[in-house]
């Protein structure tokens, strides 16, 4: 068994030991209020738990997939930049340019914007300061 293999096994063992220590040593007397879902001062409503969520999260996940794939596809170029030469560089630039144009399109379409009800903030354009982050 090499050290790497042992290290890969050590982490789950550590987690299981900590979990077992807790399960064995700690007291355990549950009742209904303790085991119900957390809510501030009221009984919890089970129906609210896995409801619909904002589409923005899904769009960000989708965009992440695209861009991470893009970055991962450029990794083979950067480790062999000398061997690829100017030709490989130009191909990489064209590939990147296409995706950057798509990104500019998304920015222009406001696809990356999350709706906020707070209007009067330092994002707001008519506010007479500099805007670091814009809507």
């Amino acid at each position: 068994m090499t050290t790497t293999t042992f290290f890969l096994f050590l982490m789950p063992i550590l987690a299981i030991i900590l979990l077992a220590v807790n399960l064995i040593l700690s007291p355990h007397n549950p009742y209904q209020e303790k085991d119900s879902a957390f809510e501030c001062g009221f009984h919890s409503f089970l129906g609210q738990n896995r409801t619909q969520f904002s589409i923005s999260f899904f769009i960000f996940a989708l965009l992440f997939l695209l861009f991470d794939l893009e970055i991962v596809l450029v990794y083979p170029y950067v480790v062999s930049a000398y061997t690829n030469g100017i030709y490989g560089l130009v191909i990489m630039l064209v590939f990147f340019l296409v995706l950057t144009l798509g990104f500019a399109f998304e920015i222009g379409k406001n696809a990356l914007k999350i709706e906020s009800r707070q209007v009067y903030n330092f994002n707001y354009k008519s506010w007479s300061g500099y805007s670091l982050i814009y809507n």
């Binding site: 807790n22 355990h28 549950p30 085991d35 089970l46």
Partner: peptide, 11 residues
């Protein structure tokens, strides 16, 4: 924290 009671919610 290791000696505290663990709470496993029913839901």
């Amino acid at each position: 924290l290791l000696l505290k009671e663990y709470v496993a919610p029913t839901q």
